Computed example of a mutant assay.
Amino acid sequence: MQILVVGLGSMGKRRIRSLMKLGFKNIIGFDPRSDRRSESEKLYKISTVSTIKEAIQKKLYCMIISTPPDSHYKYASIAIKNNIHFFTEVNLSSYDVKKIIVQLNKKSIIGLPSNTLLHHPLIKKLKILLKQNQIGNTLTVYHHFGHYLPNWHPWEDYREFYASKKKTGAAREIIPFELVWLTYLFSKIKSVYGSIHKVSNLKTNINDLYQIIIEFSNGIQCIMVIDVISDPAFSQTKIIGQKGVILCDHNEGTIKIGKSSKWKTIQIKSGEVAKGYKGNTPSESLYVDEMNQFMVAIKQKKQPRYTFNDELKILKILDAIELSDKRSRKINL
């Protein structure tokens, strides 16, 4: 049984590294680009194919779909049709995910979407601290993620890859990543008010600034800002409670707890970031954990905590944010 990695760009190569770290060697790569196939063959000593038809003819155990988001559904539907377990990177289309759910419900295979940041030790620690009521009841949250788009893939022209396309724009893509762990920490979301703009001179037509007011179902208020114009990059969260404050720097791996004018700092280790990346890139260990979760789910024939149904809820929030911006009013979910 072989593992097929669909798409041999940045994420595809990362998934290959994760699988190899877990001890899997029976990996095949597929990408229509010959340069990417050659690079993966050289780096990882794997075999590659140039068409998905050729790949499907192999005896496949599962499929890792690491293409740009707007083609995830294409390959997910191929996997479902051929009864192949599959994993996709973060999706951006609620319409596509709805179709995946409908098709997947008719099958006994495992299909899962990415939930990388739920594996972050810093997020896990925040969950523990909040459960311990370290700062009392949470009242309001401020989160700001900023990462200059040309630094996402420093080795290539930012105008040439999917993050510069309107539907799969960089700032838009970050929204689901952040909402996954924010809803995990606090609660479901009751309403959103979105303000979306292009404010930079980046040579692309994507919106590069998302400003969102969020109301969680338990009453917690949140302001989230996502931009792809900040250089240097940063990702910081401030949680204000009745008895104190938590300041979190995701890149530095620090959590500061402030109570009665005194601060306590907790350093969180999450591993090394892959060579060549800048800014807000998660460490490789998170992706290894995520791949292990998928493989265990297949082996145990059991869906883990985050499924396509969960991702659909997140994408409906993204839809609501964009509708709010369009209508210039709050949208209830």
Rank of each mutant, 00 (worst) to 15 (best):
2 Q>T: 09
2 Q>R: 11
4 L>R: 00
10 S>K: 11
22 L>F: 04
30 F>P: 02
33 R>M: 10
34 S>W: 07
35 D>E: 14
38 S>F: 05
41 E>H: 07
43 L>E: 15
46 I>W: 09
46 I>Y: 06
48 T>S: 08
49 V>F: 04
50 S>M: 05
56 I>Q: 02
58 K>V: 00
58 K>A: 07
62 C>F: 03
62 C>H: 09
63 M>H: 07
63 M>L: 10
66 S>V: 15
66 S>K: 11
70 D>G: 03
71 S>D: 05
72 H>M: 10
73 Y>R: 10
81 K>S: 07
86 F>M: 11
88 T>Q: 06
88 T>D: 12
98 K>M: 08
99 K>E: 13
100 I>A: 04
101 I>V: 10
109 I>N: 11
113 P>D: 05
117 L>T: 13
117 L>Y: 09
121 P>E: 00
122 L>E: 02
125 K>V: 00
130 L>W: 03
132 Q>D: 11
134 Q>L: 09
136 G>R: 09
137 N>F: 09
143 H>L: 14
145 F>G: 02
147 H>G: 04
150 P>V: 08
155 W>E: 13
158 Y>H: 09
163 A>E: 11
164 S>Y: 00
170 A>V: 11
171 A>H: 11
172 R>Y: 05
174 I>P: 07
174 I>A: 13
175 I>V: 15
187 S>T: 14
189 I>F: 01
195 S>F: 07
198 K>C: 01
201 N>H: 12
203 K>Q: 07
211 Q>P: 06
213 I>K: 14
217 S>F: 05
222 C>N: 15
228 V>G: 12
229 I>P: 03
231 D>F: 06
235 S>G: 04
242 Q>T: 15
242 Q>E: 15
246 I>V: 13
249 D>C: 03
257 I>Q: 07
258 G>H: 05
260 S>W: 07
270 S>N: 13
275 K>W: 08
277 Y>G: 01
283 S>H: 06
286 L>E: 07
293 Q>C: 13
298 I>P: 02
298 I>Y: 01
299 K>V: 03
303 Q>R: 14
307 T>G: 00
309 N>R: 10
311 E>F: 06
316 K>N: 13
322 E>T: 02
324 S>L: 01
324 S>R: 01
325 D>A: 08
326 K>G: 00
326 K>V: 00
333 L>Q: 14
